[in-house]
Design a binder for these strands. Structure first.
Lengths: 333, 333
DNA sequence: CTGTTAGCGCTTTCAT
DNA sequence: ATGAAAGCGCTAACAG
């Protein structure tokens, strides 16, 4: 392996001078710099980041911890985060939690050991506190994406759940629906809670009575089928929902599949809408009406906030940024 | 920061003993081990991987360099690779090249400097040679996924292009098509070349004359529209294709969009099929007939081969593994 | 079974 | 503008 010493020897200077050239120090004579750069080229020297990290305590490594990379919502977040990271000279590590607390916590330990400079995360749920407190204790900045944990002071970047929910509810009401079921995520996540509360608010604003029996809750990433759907569709005629609002794309997709199994037509017998687009290629074969959160921007912005914080350019106080969704009306409503 | 020395002091042993406990050395008395582990817990000690890497020359970091994480094909590869990496105690870095040579080469430089233990890559094209040769020179193992570069001896994991192409061509022929256009990827990629050659072979096997004018080529990730489609659809009646075979999911999707713009019905006026599923949630709203390559397994297996090589458990000779695709017939044909 | 010594490749600090 | 010394946190190699 070619080290800074080899370069120094070849250029007839001290290792320190080579270091200065690599780090673009201005206090170097043009002549020396040229000599050193030539030696670097000759020897194909590549600086060893680990050695540098040991001293500077910076690795230029960021981590993104999300439930599942294959969900287009998180894929776009990842892409946005990676683009920003790369642009700023950072590299991005990825971890999938599968909504599993222990997997999440094992990632946190590994990341701490790896020495990432910061972490972007969609936490599994409120119970993740302890894991994320660990990072705080070790002064590793965290930025929450999509979901946050109240007791942890960190920057937050998310879609505007109130605005999105209203977009969806209003659209369904405009289509003539009054009995709109909500298939929500687990209530130990901030976004489920916000969406539930926005759902209540939106209905009330439109003067539609709230029906508790139309609110059910499941996991964001769990398979479910007829059974859950039957609890809704087997309600007596006058209580049965005519539309379903799914709390994320996965639930939306599973809802569509379950309705098909039950031989119910969409949207005639049941309209369906959800948060987050399940389609990575929009407009090529659209089905579900969605409130599309700007996932790419979420990831991009989150990475930006994180890097600012790492580099000491962020205000003390945690920031919270919420971006509006776009309603995309399609065949399902 | 808590170091191995702090733990040593607290446990009244030497740093080396602590190191042995961390690394699960068997030559440690139960008593000492317990004492040390207690101290580790007390102090919440976390080993510093960079320091370890400096000595062992291993970082437990893998990189995945792909064209675009948001393409479901690559998303699944990434997911498969990450699962295997995590299972084996490695972490995965991600880089998007956007089919851009200079972006790819800049990633290679960064990865070299970061000191990844190995790289999984879908190279932009044959012109990537020099970048990937660099890694070889520095003894960083590489595994090619989906596309490979002939002159570089490295493990290769890909879908069986011959089998997949035949699946698709045979299906179209069975549906009565004789004039099947191929919208291929750039011919400086191994998979485009294999698919073209398989296309010729498959047609010939079915006794269908090859028509050069039905073979066009574009980029895997480039927008295209009416124009390219017009070169095909404006052929005289008796030469005009009745089916289109797209070389990847992106091209397939764009083909569908272009046909819609031209107001051509799918599949009545033009059938369409492609490689790789554009749907991350299969069966929820299927449109395109595809030869679905086992992307997850490709990533999983590639990571496995890479780790074997890193850990010296691989044969000298590069391995080449090709996995069969599954034909999924849908509305587009 | 446990400890000592040395050094991985680099940058910080202090000299010159 | 350049260099020398010291050490980041850890483990390989050897000693006992």
């Amino acid at each position: 392996v070619v080290t800074i010493y080899d370069v120094a020897k070849a250029a007839n200077v001290s290792p320190m001078t080579v270091s200065r050239v690599i780090n673009q120090s201005p206090r170097i004579s043009e002549k020396t710099r040229a000599k050193v750069e030539e030696a670097i080229r000759q020897l194909e020297y590549i600086p060893n980041k680990q050695a540098r990290s040991m001293i500077t305590q910076k690795t230029k490594l960021l981590a993104l911890v999300i439930p599942d990379l294959t969900n287009p919502f998180f894929t776009s977040i990842a892409r946005g985060a990676e683009d920003k990271a790369h642009q700023k000279g950072y590299q991005l590590l990825i971890g999938n939690t599968d909504e599993n607390l222990s997997k999440e916590s094992s990632y946190v330990d590994v990341l701490l050991s790896t020495g990432v400079d910061g972490v972007l995360v969609t936490p599994v749920g409120d119970a993740s506190v302890s894991a994320w407190k660990k990072l705080g204790k070790r002064r590793v900045p965290v930025v929450f994406i999509d979901r946050f944990i109240d007791s942890i002071p960190a920057d937050i970047v998310l879609g505007d759940n109130y605005q999105s929910t209203k977009l969806l509810v209003n659209h369904l009401v405009d289509r003539g629906h009054e009995r709109i079921a909500l298939i929500n995520g687990p209530d130990n996540t901030s976004n489920s809670r916000e969406r539930l509360s926005a759902y209540r608010e939106a209905l009330s604003l439109r003067g539609i009575p709230l029906r508790e029996e139309l609110i059910v809750s499941t996991q964001f990433q769990a398979e479910f089928g007829k059974d859950l759907m039957l609890t809704l569709t087997s309600l007596p005629e006058e209580k049965r929902p005519t539309a379903i609002l799914a709390a994320n794309n996965f639930i939306g997709v599973k809802t569509v599949c379950a309705l098909r199994e039950l031989q119910l037509n969409i949207p005639e017998e049941m309209a369906v809408a959800c948060f987050d687009d399940p389609e990575p290629f929009s407009d090529y074969n659209p089905l579900l009406t969605v409130a599309s959160q700007p996932a790419y921007e979420l990831g991009h912005l989150a990475a930006q906030l994180l890097i600012e914080r790492i580099e000491g350019q962020a205000p003390e106080k945690p920031r919270r940024i919420s971006l509006p969704s776009e309603l995309i009306v399609r065949k399902s409503t």
